[in-house]
């Protein structure tokens, strides 16, 4: 028993004195595989701040976690455009006062004032890119520049498709495929959307976001819905993968670093945001995640290979990307029902 007590006290002592006692802390809630560890270490060293990071794999998972009581635990998160709007409406975001961010001027003009966060009161740009799908050309050599590959696939691809586990993006892409506007409250259109997804479901093998790259690289899936930068990383591990810019359209998005309400380390969160607005640091993220930065002066710092990557340079005849829309409550509840229907 004495030994047990000894073990216990030792453990308690270890817990109290164990972890490095940095001057400050920063708690990040981030997408998986979206920031290089070196960059976090650099921030940590520059400001003597201990950084901890949890990850999520969809905008909806982020929202669900914060609404489920996790608000107040994190300082910053990185929601996509439409999710910034939703989180702001839900009162989950803190306001960045005028002059609190030194590097606010580094934001590229086109992202300085955006519809999802007018006046950039809660957020700064992180990265932007597109959502579409990638095909393993060894397994399928036909035309891939159509969303039918996902929603009405040729027989040889049936059962070899991975979809992102991301409600907003799947429903928006399906709407593009049908050529209907997003958030339509029209019953017939909603029924058509539901029917499309129900008919496509038997062709889909899985709904995986965090493993979206892995299933393509390993050949487990022949087709995978995916983000452009993640697809570029997949291609570097498996050269037969090709990202598609379908003619029906594809999704565009911008992820943004937001200041969360009740942030336990608000000052450090602002330091971190300023840090990410430095071109050098933003370029480090871009070189790692292989999307596009929203900060001026990063382009020169990018890897040459990245600048030329087919994922970042849509063909000339590709339509422009569509952003996911925020629906009103009545329509969103039906969208939720369609998604639940699909997932169950």
């Amino acid at each position: 028993m004495k030994r047990l007590f000894f073990a216990m006290t030792t453990a308690f002592l270890l817990v109290i004195c164990g972890p490095a006692n940095a001057a400050g802390k920063l708690s990040i809630y981030h997408w998986f595989e979206y920031i290089p560890q070196e960059l976090l270490d650099k921030f940590s060293a520059e400001h003597d701040i201990e950084v901890t990071m949890d990850t999520y794999d969809s905008n909806e998972a982020l929202l669900a976690a914060l609404k489920g009581g996790r608000i107040g635990e994190y300082d910053v998160a990185v929601p996509g455009d439409y999710m910034v709007e939703i989180m702001s409406a839900e009162g989950l975001l803190d306001t960045i006062a005028e002059g609190e961010l030194r590097n606010m001027g580094n934001i590229e003009p086109q992202w300085a004032d955006v519809a999802f966060d007018p006046g950039r009161k809660h957020s700064i740009p992180y990265q932007w890119g597109s959502t579409s799908f990638t095909v393993n050309r060894e397994m399928y050599s036909g035309d891939i520049r159509t969303t039918s590959i996902l929603f009405d696939p040729p027989p040889e691809l049936s059962g070899k498709i991975n979809m992102l586990d991301s409600q907003g993006e799947v429903l928006a892409l399906a709407s593009l495929h049908l050529g209907i506007e997003q958030c339509s409250g029209d019953k017939e259109k909603l029924k058509a959307l539901n029917a499309l997804l129900q008919n496509a479901k038997p062709h889909w093998a899985s709904f995986i976001s965090d493993g979206a790259k892995d299933v393509l690289v390993s050949g487990e899936a022949a087709v995978g819905m995916i983000w452009n930068g993640f697809s570029a990383k997949a291609r570097s591990e498996n050269a037969s993968l090709e990202y598609s810019y379908p003619k029906e359209g594809y999704l565009a998005w911008m992820d943004n670093v937001v200041l969360l309400k009740d942030a336990p380390n608000r000052d450090n969160a602002l330091l971190f945001m300023d840090f990410l607005l430095e071109p050098e640091n933003s370029a480090a993220v871009t070189n790692f995640a292989q999307y596009t930065s929203g900060v001026t002066g990063t382009y020169e710092l990018l890897d040459a290979e990245l600048k030329a990557s087919p994922e970042l340079n849509p063909p000339a005849d590709a339509p422009s990307g569509t952003f996911v829309a925020v629906c009103d409550q009545a329509t969103q509840e039906l969208y939720d029902a369609i998604w639940t229907n699909l997932k169950k």
């Binding site: 969809s58 998972a61 669900a64 489920g68 093998a205 899985s206 709904f207 995986i208 997932k343 169950k344």
Partner: peptide, 23 residues
């Protein structure tokens, strides 16, 4: 099982840790 071969455990987990958020 991927997300296709749901069992009751995955269904429950989805409500709390996943995207559903329906406690």
């Amino acid at each position: 099982g991927g997300a296709r071969n749901f069992m009751i455990g995955s269904l429950i987990e989805e409500q709390f840790k996943g995207t559903a958020g329906n406690w």
